[in-house]
């Protein structure tokens, strides 16, 4: 960080002032941002969420002329970062990387989180989404979801499915799948997605509905077989893999997303300005290319369509949580 930090700050400073000089007349409604903006990430450095935050932070730094700085506050699947945002002034200078956890299921699962996404946050902009994918060990004698279900019915209680922790998206999707397909498989939790993937490659665990970003490399190497993606449509980088809906499980329409959210009472002009900048990133070829590198695609969703999207996904999550053996709190 030291040297490059310096250089980067200098470069940003210069570009920022140039941009500010040329662009300021167009954006006269609010002078936001006049000082650096913090983007809170509820995960440690290096994961998909962190990288997504850094991509959008870099872009906003260039287009809005102030440094957007990523601050990692890991803990309780993002709940700690979200709660921290509540303690900060609602001025748009503390944003949160909003994802499925912070915006949908933490409130349903964590009894002691004080952050309620509907009550406490407002969308600044949606920018990326990714899919989950049903993967199996390459030596498992199945090549489709139907064959996997048939195998599991033939050997009830013998197959294992992995997850990166109880109550996480991989576990809940797996549990929901076993419920929908009426199969009896044993859940094996792991500490991280990478550990789970290793165990599936080694053949000790049989299948999982993993995050695409984690298992993409193993799929393209042939170490894992991908049977279906949970996205509503086929995924560009895996064109031969059917969707869960095609495989007969339309209920498993699962989208994990990346967004920036601000505190609820933030000035609408500030949200508007952020939204315009984020929408421009989503529409740009660089945005598509950069998001592609972290296993995501641009997600163009207007603030007007956001509540409906959250409601639909919320219903799916509620069903998954029930399948996972708990009662949603909300």
């Amino acid at each position: 960080m030291k040297l490059t930090g310096y250089i980067r700050k200098a470069v940003w400073g210069v570009t920022a002032s140039l941009i500010a000089m040329t662009a300021s007349p167009l954006l006269a409604e609010t002078d936001y941002p006049t000082r650096p903006v913090t983007i809170l990430v509820g995960a440690g450095p290096g994961g998909g969420n962190d990288l997504a935050a850094r991509l959008i932070a870099d872009d906003l730094t260039k287009t809005l002329g102030q440094a957007f700085v990523v601050e990692n506050r890991p803990g309780a699947s993002g709940a700690r970062a979200a709660e921290y945002m509540m303690t900060q002034p609602a001025d748009g200078y503390t944003l949160l990387l909003g994802n499925t956890a912070t915006q949908i299921y933490n409130a349903m699962l964590l009894a002691d989180t004080t952050f309620d996404p509907d009550r406490d946050s407002a969308l600044a902009g949606m920018f990326g989404k990714s899919s989950n994918v049903l993967v199996v060990n390459k030596d498992l004698p199945v090549n489709s979801v139907a064959e996997l279900v048939a195998l599991a019915k033939e050997k009830p209680g013998e197959l294992n499915y992995g997850s990166a922790g109880v109550g996480g998206s991989i576990h809940l999707a797996g549990a929901y799948f076993t419920q929908l397909a009426e199969i009896d498989a044993v859940h094996v939790p792991f500490k991280s997605g990478a550990e789970m993937m290793t165990d599936i490659i080694a053949g000790n665990t049989d299948f999982a509905i993993d995050n695409l970003a984690t298992s993409f490399s193993a799929i393209s190497n042939g170490d894992l077989k991908a049977l279906a993606v949970t996205n509503a449509t086929r995924w560009d980088s895996l064109p031969d893999v059917p969707t869960m809906a095609e495989a007969g499980y339309p209920q498993l329409d699962l989208t994990s997303f990346y967004s920036l959210v601000a505190a609820k009472d933030t000035d609408p002009a500030v949200l508007d300005k952020l939204n315009t900048a984020i929408a421009a990133y989503v529409a740009s070829p660089e945005g598509a290319e950069q998001l592609g590198r972290i296993g995501a695609v641009p997600f163009d969703l207007s603030p007007a369509d956001y509540p409906a999207f959250i409601t639909t996904q919320g219903e799916i999550w509620r069903a998954m949580i029930v399948a996972g053996g708990t009662t949603p709190l909300k």
Binding site: M1, K2, G5
Partner: peptide, 12 residues
């Protein structure tokens, strides 16, 4: 300032 650790120098 030099290393860029994101901590507020003067609090709210």
């Amino acid at each position: 300032w030099a290393l860029g650790v994101p901590i507020r120098v003067i609090g709210p």
